[in-house]
Simulated assay, not measured.
Amino acid sequence: MQKPIPCSIMRGGTSKGLYFLADDLPTDIKERNQLLLAAMGSPDMRQIDGLGGAHPLTSKVAIVSRSEHADVDYLFLQVVVDKAEVSDVQNCGNILAGVGPFAIEQGLVPANENFTDVRIHMVNTGSYAIARVQTPNGVVNYSGDAKIDGVPGTSASVLIDFLDIAGSSCGALFPTGKSQNIINGVSVTCIDNGMPVVLIQASDFGLTGSESPAELEANSNLKDKVEAIRLQAGQLMNLGDVSNKTVPKMSLVSKPLSGGLVNTRTFIPHRVHEAIGVLGSVSVATACVLKGTVAHDLLQQDFPDGSTEIVVEHPTGQFTVEMELSDSSNFTHFKVQRAALLRTTRLLMRGEAMIEISYT
């Protein structure tokens, strides 16, 4: 017998996932994860018997509920495509873009006349964000002229302001205590400003940075080297054994190709991102502006305190991160006062997911 579970399918930024109210899911984590695996159709490379899109970027889940700490709690879960695994070890800033609209649609947050600010507690890391949702006449608006790279067409903008996210997963912005470390003879920067990321100059692997995701994924020697560094970096970043974790992400940085500040190719960690994750881009942008990192060494450009825009290039376009800095030239006193960016989202479907499942 199939069990109907209310859910919505939403595109958030350059990702897509299932959005659930926490009250509609089992409280037992094992039962909940079995249900989500069945809903997505995992484990199966095609996810043919579920709602997943056969790619990590389209096999994501948001669980939303009222919060004691903010307007809503948001738990992000990554449902692995080809394994019976559900991970809660990271946030997702793309799926975050749909949380505010979903919360308003579900009656968790009352809509204002023109726009509604939704304060979101990101349960995975205990950090916070404010999403500004367009709500003309008290109704969520998804149509507009905002365009983000990696998504066709235009939609209404969702401005996301991240609040004090430094070290949210690793305990410190530079969890190793250094702006650079040497791992397997390669200079790396381990940073966590919302997402644990390891930055490496692409040239250290003999790459130009212009390689496509498909080219990088086909390079087994490169993937082995990147993974070997990632496993050691995970220990240094207070993440423990990361062999079965989706963090840290690995970002190869190079000089810009299309007028941005820095170019990236990001392993997430075993596939190469067609773009770059929201919080991953914030961590990369932060490394660019702080002296001593491999990104700053690459760019050889200083940034004044105050507000600045960092344009991060990725395989399908660019990502602009607005930042406010103080003491960026001082490794021991620097402060990222604010990080914000623009995303779009769209409600694709709402109804019931039909789950064929037996709990054991």
Rank of each mutant, 00 (worst) to 15 (best):
V133F: 04
K60Y: 06
S258F: 00
G144F: 03
A38P: 09
Q235D: 15
P175S: 02
Q232A: 07
V278L: 10
Q78K: 02
Y128Q: 07
L77V: 02
F267N: 03
G150Y: 10
F115H: 12
G13M: 10
A202I: 15
I48P: 15
T58N: 12
N112F: 01
G194W: 02
V272G: 03
I148V: 15
L342F: 05
I191L: 12
A228N: 13
A156T: 12
I120Y: 09
F267H: 07
G185F: 06
Q78D: 14
G240H: 08
L279C: 10
D49A: 11
V133C: 10
I48N: 11
K245Q: 08
K255I: 00
S65E: 14
A339T: 14
S87H: 13
T125A: 13
G107D: 05
I160N: 05
V282Q: 00
S59F: 01
L239R: 05
I29Q: 11
D297M: 12
T27E: 15
Q134K: 12
D327S: 02
V253K: 07
P152Q: 11
V253P: 06
V81H: 01
G351R: 04
R350M: 07
L18A: 01
P175Q: 05
L77H: 06
V312W: 14
A131T: 01
P4K: 00
H69C: 05
T58M: 13
K245W: 00
T360L: 06
